[in-house]
Simulated scan of single mutants.
Amino acid sequence: MIRRVRGGFSTGSRAFPGFSGADDEGVLIGLETSQWLVEALILRRVMFRSIRRLYELARADPVDPELRGWSWDRLPLKPRAYLNLGVSEIASKYCETRRDIWLRRKTGARAEPTEPILTGRLIHDAISLALKETAKLLINNTEPYTAYQILSEKWRKLNPPKGYEKTVEKTYKATLITILGEAMYEKLVNETPQPVAYSEYRVDGTPLGMSQNLSVDVISDSVIIDFKTGAPRDFHKLSITGYALALEAAYETPRDYGLLIYINNPEDPRITYKPVYISNTLRRLFIEERDNIIDMLLEDAEPPKDLNCQPTCPLHGACNK
């Protein structure tokens, strides 16, 4: 039996540092190789237990069928125009006036590489590498513990810039441990240690006016997982919502839950997570943002500058010419 203790979890005889949580979010820190199996199984339980806590929300506020992705051929989901929009364009409201989208689409402005963008790319590459490497070994029936021993140092292949080594290593190993923990769980329960997560999952968002080549960070046990850097923002939930709608349109199966995972601080990486119920409210907000962007681009009216524009914006230079 696993129970929560201060600073971690206990199996009844000892505590394992590195995991703490709250009712609606949690923190994962310190992944020790020597404890990889126990921590992997705990990690799976903690993160996906947080999803189960959302079931009550789903029962109290079930998704309206007209807001499911498979209702793409009628309002309110049917788009006013098909502009091949990306989920990130619709969901990322860092620029409150959406001038960033207008500049890219209408003037061809290119984003400048910034520290947050670099960090995000490195994290994405580390996660992708871990998922691909584990899949190769698990498909060949390699034991999960053996797979960890073989793969634990392969993050070095990414050759991260100086100062980002810890971020890449921890992101890679956290992903490795999570997937191998799930594989061990599947082996113990179903005797099939096959990979149960899919990275960079491609889905066609065309029916909803989005790109035909959307890429979902990770799908695991039907849960949509999206990785973020920086401070949590309410609109981050919209990215998971957009992917859910696209997946529902493509496969006509419900997608109700997501998990936002934040990875920050290159010097001392910290991983936090937040479960998301993809509610009616989030679905309406996403569609409203999509429609507003479509109207802005069709009307060809240049939006004003965001009064809260930050120098870290990758289009700051183009916006202030």
Score class of each variant (00 low, 15 high):
residue 161 P to V: 13
residue 178 T to F: 08
residue 141 N to Q: 14
residue 155 W to Q: 01
residue 132 K to V: 06
residue 156 R to T: 14
residue 166 K to G: 02
residue 158 L to K: 10
residue 167 T to S: 11
residue 152 S to A: 14
residue 163 G to N: 11
residue 177 I to F: 06
residue 157 K to E: 15
residue 160 P to S: 11
residue 141 N to D: 15
residue 171 T to N: 05
residue 143 E to N: 15
residue 156 R to E: 09
residue 173 K to P: 04
residue 132 K to N: 04
residue 147 A to N: 12
residue 151 L to C: 11
residue 159 N to F: 07
residue 146 T to P: 02
residue 143 E to T: 11
residue 171 T to D: 05
residue 149 Q to E: 13
residue 170 K to V: 04
residue 151 L to A: 09
residue 178 T to Y: 06
residue 169 E to G: 01
residue 149 Q to A: 10
residue 142 T to F: 15
residue 139 I to D: 11
residue 138 L to C: 07
residue 145 Y to M: 10
residue 150 I to N: 08
residue 135 A to M: 05
residue 163 G to T: 06
residue 154 K to S: 12
residue 133 E to V: 03
residue 145 Y to S: 15
residue 164 Y to M: 09
residue 144 P to I: 11
residue 160 P to K: 07
residue 161 P to M: 08
residue 135 A to G: 04
residue 154 K to L: 11
residue 149 Q to V: 08
residue 141 N to W: 12
residue 173 K to I: 07
residue 142 T to I: 13
residue 147 A to R: 11
residue 167 T to L: 15
residue 169 E to N: 05
residue 176 L to F: 02
residue 143 E to D: 15
residue 173 K to N: 15
residue 137 L to R: 09
residue 173 K to D: 03
residue 173 K to F: 02
residue 165 E to C: 06
residue 154 K to E: 08
residue 148 Y to H: 14
residue 162 K to Y: 10
residue 150 I to K: 13
residue 143 E to M: 12
residue 143 E to Q: 12
residue 141 N to E: 14
residue 145 Y to F: 15
residue 175 T to H: 01
residue 132 K to E: 13
residue 150 I to V: 14
residue 136 K to P: 01
residue 133 E to C: 01
residue 132 K to D: 08
residue 164 Y to V: 03
residue 152 S to F: 13
residue 144 P to F: 14
residue 149 Q to I: 04
residue 152 S to H: 14
residue 159 N to H: 09
residue 177 I to S: 05
residue 133 E to I: 02
residue 166 K to D: 00
residue 157 K to F: 02
residue 153 E to I: 01
residue 163 G to D: 13
residue 136 K to V: 10
residue 174 A to V: 01
residue 135 A to H: 10
residue 151 L to K: 11
residue 148 Y to N: 03
residue 154 K to W: 02
residue 138 L to W: 12
residue 157 K to C: 01
residue 163 G to E: 07
residue 141 N to V: 14
residue 160 P to V: 06
residue 178 T to G: 10
residue 132 K to S: 06
residue 164 Y to I: 03
residue 172 Y to W: 02
residue 166 K to W: 01
residue 138 L to Y: 10
residue 172 Y to P: 01
residue 162 K to N: 11
residue 178 T to R: 05
residue 144 P to M: 14
residue 157 K to I: 06
residue 176 L to G: 05
residue 144 P to R: 11
residue 140 N to I: 08
residue 175 T to K: 00
residue 134 T to V: 15
residue 165 E to G: 12
residue 160 P to T: 13
residue 137 L to M: 07
residue 143 E to V: 06
residue 159 N to S: 14
residue 160 P to L: 05
residue 173 K to H: 03
residue 155 W to T: 00
residue 140 N to A: 15
residue 142 T to S: 10
residue 172 Y to N: 00
residue 138 L to V: 11
residue 169 E to F: 00
residue 142 T to P: 04
residue 149 Q to M: 13
